[in-house]
Structure formats: structure tokens, C-alpha cells
Design a protein around this nucleic acid. Structure first.
Length: 924
RNA sequence: GCGAGGGUAACCAAGAGGCCAAAGGUGACCGCCUCAAGAGCGGUUCUCGCAGGAGUUCAAGGGUUCGAAUCCCUUCCCUCGCACCA
């Protein structure tokens, strides 16, 4: 056998040839294992973070394959939605940032970039790239099942899904406020915004004050405070407009008039009126009576209606503005009117807050946070006074809002929480109410309960995230599931709408099982009846065409339900939970998901990986630079899947060295053909332990731990074995197991090593190593452990005393001390060890000596690993024999004569200190 | 702010009442090998110690316990989510 050197490039080439078609799987007599990962949205190049998302499942897939399962690992591409449309537009418009990203970071060739004017060209380009890079990482995917979410067959499938959801009553119609660009005449997503991505939409109540024959609507988030209104505020420097809104006369800011026109109101401007001229007029509202209009500069005409009601007892802004006026001697008759009692504040909470914070006037920037603080306190802990109903603020707020809506002309106005929100076209973004919007009714309690029941039946890894799923189910509200723009499938009963991307990707795991068959069938033949038959087994009647739907249904039933789904933790609050909702609604109980593994996030050199910030390392570059196995081993081994991981090139480099070291170690070991040696039994025994542990870690998805065990665990044992002069052909078995334990993680290298040991067939389909209880030899393990510990002790003494030793004496513990040791080890409560031992006449005889021995033994037993203690007890080592047999070894290790003697025979004073499993060492 | 999860030596990370001065890996340092560098091999890496030991540590403070990195409370810090977006 010639010794080959380690060359990842050749290994990868060879393995890829060998694996050709090997992962294309069909139903068979074997048991199946079906795992899926969230399919990628291919709008950019893959970075190492994506790499881990797909490599970890691949490791699991390869493990189960070796266990003898028929393993399905499919992949597809999610291309529905709006992002690529935006990207395409930006590139065409010459947006520098976008072009830089695609040209320099993603390395898209110039002529390809030109094609990006067609959004589908982007996803086509990158899905090809994804597939190529995934293959270069060795992902064992059945590519025959690849599809995209705009394939016509897939659309038929989604239509079928939605007809079912509709039938089950989960899809309802409603109105929905969205961010909207008047210039583009379209709703805008985060990707379309120049500024204001984090803007939230607030729902204000407009409290309608009567002023002459007009209404003055004041906007508030706290309608219950109407009972404490002492005045309303206008900005004296603003020119307001008189408008007709839905036939009634209103006075609002000019900005507000525009906003209202997008929110289902007929608005026409009739004239102007200066803020200052409104001041000192009287307005009225049935719930607070007549109050004056006062001036305040803090009032922003671009915020809601541009006029607000004043509740100085509970709103710091109002309190200060009023105080400012009164400081000038005006409006002295107005007193804050308290209506809420809240813990931690006095009768006039706003006053307390303002005084405590030392606010000077209404321009003080601290007022904002103060307002928030009081708002939160009153909302969570406040209660209205009895004369205003006595209810907690939480409840009163909705009650009063409803009352005002029904009785006093109040309407809802939507407004952003921040002012600066611009579309990429430069225009100001507004809120528009979309009608006929379709919602998925995730708020449905019954549906939620079904999901909870299913969740309880599922395996969740890591277990800590289960509570987060439970929370999410409780918290989910109705989801606006249709869009006007983007790519996707049309809603079957209302084709003006497209099904939104998070809603068309919930049960596609079922589609994978039959995707390669469906591709052969004309989309028109894929009627709902066809899917009803395939997925639900409904009696077919006459189905279109001349297709073998029976075998398609059989294949679906073979694979489904999926065993495990992998995805990153940021998808818990939407996708991962949505998919349970959809599954329970559509599929029978025996076809519902079995489990999920939730991933952590990726860091690059300690900073969050982010394409838009350019802080990414492309997967393809990593594979080229380090080799596929290095990338795999690093991504799998640096942290458990659910932990965040950090990519650092220097650490990756040392991973590569480790693989190379493995290669060399195994190649060297192959050449060892010494005679059998008693230490062989020890090595084989340890091997069983390693197999057992590694297997358990893979079973638990602890890929990092599995790697540690399979790589370093076996390496350490082998080191000791060689130190003990082992080198017999049992190594062949050891190596064969070693390679297989690491195959899921470093399949390319494993394939090369497997060939070197003339293993049968591709190692990716080799049998997983079996734990063999017959090869476990505890006696030998206990003996070697004793020897190892003694060697370590000698070494640490030598280091400390720094003399050149002439000889080493090892004093073996006398048998009676082993009796003590055994007795103590068997005691439940070791605190009274001395008492228990003293009850034995033989022991008592020994007097004071026994006290010291008991103490030393107790201490020692505590320090030994519990597993080892029980192994020692069942295999009491013959220390004298063990050391005599190892005498030669010890002498070679330390280069001096070694004397083995019973402690009883030794004259040295130290010898009395010998205790079981810890002989006395005397170095002279 | 709300919800979920975290904070362990230079770094990553195991540990979840006595096995713990705390696995493993990296990095750093020292030896060996080499003309030399790298790789490889061996050792060291909280403090003290010329006998295998002792002392102070596991975000900070307090508590429970014979005993706490581990359990409880408080504070500080970090990550993820808070939606109509993949």
C-alpha cells in the first residue's frame, strides 16, 4: 500500500465522481428519513452563514444514510415576493450601492448584470450558483426534485392548498393599513425605503371636538383621558385648513388632510385658517364639556391631525405647555384634572414626573422619554377613578374608544411613529388602507389549540425554544396574506391578489416528495382533485390525463411526514410556526411534522454577518481557499447548531491542519504490523465507548460534540496506545471505525481514506460502526487508567522537584486498604464513613492509622469520576501485577530503574500514604 | 418597552449541587526536529509551592446549603423576535 499525501482538490474531484447520482432516492424496503431545510431566496451569493444552514442538515442526512435509512434531502428555491423586483429596479436605475454589491461582492459578471433588468433573471442566476456551490460543499441533495415557487405546477399546488384553507374558514377578508408610495402608486416594503425602515404604524383615535359648525379632530393614543381634558392645543405658527371630510366640516393641518385622503376619506380643502386665530376659541365634547383652544409650539402639524387634546394631569407635554403659559400669567384658572390613579405617582402624575425630572420647558428633549415612561406606567398599572368607571386603563381605553366611535363621531387615523419615511423614488411615504385584503386567521383560538397540540407532539431542538414557539402561537394575530406586487401565485378565487411569500411556503415539504413526477405533468392536469387524491387519498373518480397518480401518492406516503425541519431561530415567530398552522389545517394527524431543529446565527470575526453591510465571507471562496471538508468541519465543529458561530479565517486554517493530521495519522497507522499486544484489548474497549458516545451525539444533533468525540477522543486513545507500544493489526479495525465516525462531517477525506484501506463501496453508504459489548474490557480500562494517572503524577512531581532522578519506587497499597476503599465507596452517606468502618473489629484494631486512611480514601473517591469508581469496584485492579507488567514501559518512559514494591515492605516513611488507585511514588 | 434565550480563563466552548482550577479546540510561550522557515511531536498557559498540594476564581451583589460555576432573588450587559418582510 503506498502512502498518498493529503490533497483536498483531488479528494473532492474523486468523491464527486463517485457520488454521481448516489443521492437520488426512491421509495424502497428500507425505512425512510426525510429532512428539510428552509429553501433559500436566491437574490445574492451564498456566504458561509448559509453554508452552515445547509451543511449541518447534510451531516445529519449522511449519518442516517449510514444507519441504513433511505434518506431524502431535497432542495428548491423560493422566488416569490418583491425583493428581486426592487433589486432589479435599483440596478437598472444605476443605484451605486446595489451595483457595487452585485458586481464586487457577489462577483456577477458584467453581461449577466445587464440581464438583471428582468427580476427572474436574478433568481435564475443565483439559484444556479446556489446549486453549484452546494454541490461543491458535498451536500447530498436529490436534485431531481428541485423546483422554484413560480413553476406552474407549484402554483397549482399552492392554489390547492389555499382552496383548502378557505374551505376550512381560515381565510377572511378585511381592510389593512400599509405603507404606500403615492408616486409609485404601490405599497412599499422595507427594501423599497430610502429612510424609515423601522417605522411602525400607530392607530390613533380622533376625538371630535365641536367648534361652531365644524369638527376639530384631535388625535390620541389614549382616548380614555378625554375625561381629563382641560383644553386643546394648536400650533399658533401653523396654518390649518378647513376641509370637508366625508361631507362634514373639519379643521386639520394641511399634512393631515393629505393623509386622511389615503385613509378612506373623501377630502376636499375649502379654505385656510391660521392657528393663532383659533386660539382662545371654545370647543366642546360631550365627554368633557367646553374647553378653550390654547397655543403650544410642541404641536407638530405633520403628526396625525396637527391638533391635540390636552390632559395636563397625565401628559407631561400638556402639563409643561400649560405651566409655561401660566408662568406668563395666562389661563390661571385652568387646573389639571386627574382621572387615573397609578402606583408610584401622586394625584397629578404628570406634575410628579416633570418635577422629578427637572424639566424646564416644552422644548426640553427629555419630555419624550418621560411621556413614554408615564404612558407605560399608567397603561400597565393605572386605574380610572370611580366617577369615570373605575376600570383599569388597559380596559377603559378600548371601551372609551368604542364609545366615541359609536356615539361621538370618532374615527381611526393611522400614523407612523417617526416622521421621516421616504420611498426610494424620493417621495414621502403615506399610510393607505387597502381593501379586500385577505387575511389568514391565525387569531382563531381553535386553530391555535390544534397547533399547540401538534407542537406538544413534536421534537424541538434545542428544548429551550419550545416556550418561544408557545408564545408565538399565542401572540399571532391575523396575517395579511395577499399582495398586489411581486412574484407569486394568484389567489384562486380572487386573482387580483398574489399569495404572499411567507404564506406560500408552509407545506412545500410535501411537494418535494413528488416534485420530480409533477414536473412531467402538464400544469392544467394538476386539478385540485388530483392533489386531493395524492395528499389526502380522496377517492379519485376520473382524473385528468393518463398519469400514474397512484404511484405518486405512494411515494408521498412513503416519505411523509417529514422527520425534521431545520431553520434559523429568527423564523420561529413566523415561518416555523406558520407551517404548523398550515399542516394541521390540511393534513391528517399521521402526516404532521415530527420535529424541528432551530439554528443560531452567524458571525464573521465577531460581527454579525450581513450582506447589505458587506460583512460576509462567500461560501464559494471559503471552499476554494480551505477545501470543502475544512469548511464543513469548521462550521459543524465550532458550535452546536443552535448556538451562534463565529467564522474566523485563522481558526479555519487550523481546522484544515487537523484534517491533514488525521490523514497522516491514519496513513502511518496503516503501516503498523506489530505482534498483538495486551494493550490491543484496551484500545478496542475504548473504541466501543467512543462509538457509543459519538452515536448518541449525532442522534441529538450535537454535531460539535460528535466531532470532538470522533476526532479528538479517538486521537487521544490512539496516542496512549502508541505510547504503550501498541501497533498491531487491530488498528485496521480502529481506523475503519474512525473513518466512518467522521464520514458525515468530512465525507471527501473519508472517501479517500476509505479507498486507502480498501473499504467496500463508497464510504457514504458504508454501515455505521456498531457498538460491540463483547469488546468492552473494563478490567483493562481500569488498569490503564491507573497507569496513566500514576505516570501523570510522576511527571508532575518531577517537574516540581527538579532533580535528576536515579530511580523511581512505586509502593503498592496493601489489600486491607482496598477493603476500606470498597466499603466507603458503597456508602450512601460518606460523612459518617469513619463511624461505619470502626464498627468492623478488624479495622478498629488498626487504631489511629485507620482514621487517616478513611479520610484519604473518602477524599479520593470524591475526586474520581463516579463511572470510574463503579468500574473499579467491579474490577478491583491487581495493582502489583499491573505495575510489574508495566515496569519496562515505565522505565522507558522515565529513563531510570523503576522498583515496584508493596508499601508494607518499603521502609520509606512516605510509603504509609499509599491508598487504593493511588500508589505512593518515591523519586530519588 | 414586551417576549424568548444567554454572560465560564487570551479567544471559542463543555460543565447544570460534591467528580471542578473547571473537558476539548484555538492562540501564546518553551523545548525537540530542521541549514532555516513551516508542518509535526512534547510541555507550559489564575496565583503560590523543590512531592503528586494549597489559595483565589465561573458578569456583579445578596441568599439557600455541611458544600454553589451549577439552585433562588436583585442589578448590569449581550443575542433573537415584536409581523405583513425574506
Amino acid at each position: 500500500m503506498t502512502k498518498e499525501s493529503f490533497d483536498p482538490v483531488i479528494l473532492e474531484e474523486n468523491a464527486k465522481k463517485l457520488w454521481q447520482g448516489l443521492f437520488e432516492v426512491n421509495p424502497s424496503a428500507k425505512n425512510k428519513f426525510y429532512l428539510t431545510v428552509a429553501y433559500p431566496y436566491p437574490s445574492g451569493a451564498m456566504h458561509v452563514g448559509h453554508g452552515r444552514t445547509y451543511i449541518v442538515p447534510d451531516v445529519i442526512a449522511r449519518y442516517y444514510r449510514m444507519l441504513g435509512y433511505e434518506v431524502l434531502y431535497p432542495m428548491a428555491f423560493h422566488v416569490t415576493g418583491a425583493p428581486v423586483i426592487g433589486i432589479s429596479k435599483r440596478i437598472m436605475n444605476g443605484d451605486e450601492k446595489a451595483i457595487q454589491l452585485y458586481k464586487n461582492l457577489y462577483k456577477v459578471p458584467e453581461d449577466e448584470l445587464k440581464r438583471f433588468k428582468e427580476p427572474l433573471a436574478i433568481v435564475r442566476y443565483f439559484s444556479d450558483e446556489y446549486a453549484r456551490v452546494m454541490a461543491s460543499c458535498g451536500l447530498s441533495i436529490d436534485w431531481r426534485r428541485k423546483f422554484t415557487t413560480v413553476d406552474p405546477q407549484y402554483s397549482r399546488f399552492i392554489e390547492w392548498q389555499w382552496l383548502h384553507l378557505k374551505e376550512a374558514g381560515h381565510v377572511v377578508k378585511g381592510a389593512h393599513p400599509v405603507r404606500y408610495c403615492p408616486q409609485c402608486d404601490n405599497p412599499v416594503g422595507d427594501h423599497d425605503l430610502l429612510e424609515g425602515e423601522k417605522a411602525e404604524i400607530f392607530r390613533f383615535s380622533l376625538v371630535m371636538f365641536k367648534w361652531n359648525d365644524s369638527f376639530i379632530p384631535t388625535a390620541t393614543l389614549r382616548p380614555e383621558t378625554i375625561y381629563g381634558v382641560t383644553n386643546i392645543w394648536v400650533n399658533p405658527d401653523t396654518t390649518y385648513v378647513k376641509v370637508t371630510v366625508d361631507g362634514a366640516k373639519w379643521i386639520v393641518s394641511r399634512e393631515a388632510a393629505v393623509k386622511l385622503s389615503y385613509q378612506d376619506h373623501e377630502v376636499s380643502i375649502e379654505g385656510e385658517i391660521k392657528g393663532s386665530s383659533l386660539v382662545d376659541s371654545i370647543v366642546s365634547h360631550p365627554l368633557c364639556g367646553e374647553v378653550p383652544i390654547l397655543p403650544a409650539v410642541f404641536v407638530d402639524p405633520d403628526m396625525a391631525t396637527g391638533i391635540v387634546m390636552s390632559v395636563p394631569a397625565h401628559a407631561p407635554f400638556d402639563y409643561i405647555a400649560l405651566r409655561d403659559l401660566q408662568d406668563e400669567g395666562k389661563y390661571l384658572s385652568i387646573v389639571p384634572k386627574s382621572l387615573i390613579t397609578v402606583e408610584g405617582y401622586g394625584f397629578v402624575p404628570a406634575k410628579d414626573a416633570v418635577v422629578r425630572a427637572g424639566i424646564k420647558d416644552q422644548r426640553d428633549p427629555k419630555v419624550d422619554s418621560l411621556t413614554q415612561e408615564l404612558y407605560n406606567a399608567e397603561f400597565s398599572k393605572g386605574t380610572l377613578y370611580p366617577e369615570f368607571g373605575g376600570k383599569p386603563v388597559k380596559i377603559a381605553r378600548d371601551d372609551v374608544a368604542l364609545l366615541m366611535k359609536e356615539e361621538y363621531h370618532s374615527v381611526t387615523m393611522f400614523e407612523f411613529d417617526i416622521r421621516q419615511i421616504f420611498c426610494r423614488c424620493g417621495s414621502n411615504v403615506v399610510i393607505k388602507i387597502l381593501h379586500d385584503q385577505w387575511f389568514l386567521q391565525y387569531s382563531d383560538t381553535e386553530w391555535k389549540n390544534e397547533v399547540k397540540e401538534q407542537l406538544a407532539r413534536m421534537e424541538i431542538v434545542p428544548p429551550e425554544v419550545r416556550t418561544e414557539f408557545e408564545r408565538t402561537i399565542d401572540w399571532l394575530k391575523d396575517w395579511a396574506c395577499t399582495r398586489k406586487i411581486g412574484l407569486g401565485t394568484k389567489l384562486p378565487w380572487d386573482p387580483r391578489w398574489l399569495i404572499e411569500p411567507l404564506s406560500d411556503s408552509t407545506i412545500y415539504m410535501a411537494y418535494y416528495t413528488i416534485a420530480h413526477h409533477l414536473r412531467q405533468i402538464p400544469p392544467d392536469d394538476l386539478t385540485p382533485q388530483v392533489f386531493d387524491y395524492i395528499f389526502l387519498g380522496k377517492e379519485p373518480g376520473k382524473l385528468p390525463g393518463d398519469h400514474d397518480f397512484k404511484s405518486i401518492r405512494d411515494e408521498f406516503l412513503y416519505w411523509y411526514p417529514y422527520n425534521i425541519r431545520f431553520s434559523a431561530k429568527d423564523l420561529i415567530s413566523n415561518h416555523l410556526t406558520f407551517q404548523i398552522f398550515h399542516h394541521v389545517s390540511i393534513f391528517p394527524e399521521n402526516l404532521l411534522p415530527k420535529g424541528m431543529v432551530v439554528f443560531g446565527m452567524g458571525l464573521l470575526n465577531g460581527a454579525k454577518m450581513s450582506s447589505s453591510k458587506g460583512n460576509v465571507f462567500l461560501l464559494e471562496d471559503a471552499v476554494k481557499e480551505f477545501g470543502a471538508d475544512t469548511v464543513r468541519m469548521f462550521l459543524v465543529g465550532s458550535a452546536e447548531p443552535w448556538q451562534d458561530f463565529d467564522w474566523r479565517n485563522e481558526l479555519v486554517l487550523s481546522t484544515r491542519k487537523q484534517i491533514e493530521r488525521l490523514w497522516n495519522t491514519i496513513m502511518d497507522a496503516l503501516e503498523m504490523t506489530d505482534e498483538p499486544n495486551p494493550i490491543d484489548d484496551w484500545l478496542m474497549s475504548r473504541l466501543q465507548y467512543r462509538i457509543e458516545r459519538t452515536t448518541e451525539f449525532y442522534n441529538n444533533f450535537q454535531t460539535r460534540q460528535a466531532l470532538q468525540e470522533a476526532y479528538f477522543g479517538l486521537e487521544n486513545d490512539l496516542k496512549w496506545y502508541k505510547r504503550r507500544k501498541g501497533g498491531s493489526p487491530v488498528l485496521n479495525e480502529y481506523i475503519s471505525v474512525w473513518i466512518r465516525l467522521l464520514t458525515p462531517i468530512i465525507p471527501f477525506t473519508a472517501e479517500g481514506l476509505w479507498k486507502a484501506i480498501s473499504g467496500e463501496g463508497p464510504v457514504v453508504y458504508a454501515d455505521w460502526p456498531n457498538y460491540n459489548a463483547n469488546k468492552v474490557n473494563k478490567k483493562s480500562e481500569v488498569a490503564e487508567e491507573l497507569l496513566l494517572r500514576t505516570v501523570e503524577d510522576v511527571e508532575s512531581i518531577l517537574k516540581l522537584i527538579q532533580i535528576t532522578p536515579k530511580s523511581i519506587t512505586i509502593c503498592i497499597t496493601p489489600d486491607w486498604k482496598w477493603k476500606v476503599f470498597t466499603l466507603i465507596a458503597g456508602l450512601e452517606d460518606k460523612r459518617n464513613a469513619i463511624k461505619s468502618i470502626m464498627e468492623i473489629p478488624d479495622m478498629k484494631m488498626r487504631g489511629k492509622e485507620i482514621v487517616d486512611v478513611v479520610k484519604a480514601c473518602t477524599n479520593h473517591i470524591h475526586r474520581l469520576p463516579p463511572g470510574l469508581v463503579s468500574d473499579i469496584l467491579t474490577n478491583i485492579p491487581e495493582e502489583m501485577r499491573i505495575f510489574n507488567e508495566a515496569k519496562k514501559f515505565l522505565e522507558e518512559e522515565f529513563g531510570v530503574p523503576v522498583i515496584i514494591t508493596g508499601a508494607d515492605e518499603c521502609t520509606h516513611t512516605k510509603s504509609a500514604g499509599a491508598i487504593p488507585y493511588k500508589p505512593v511514588i518515591i523519586i530519588e
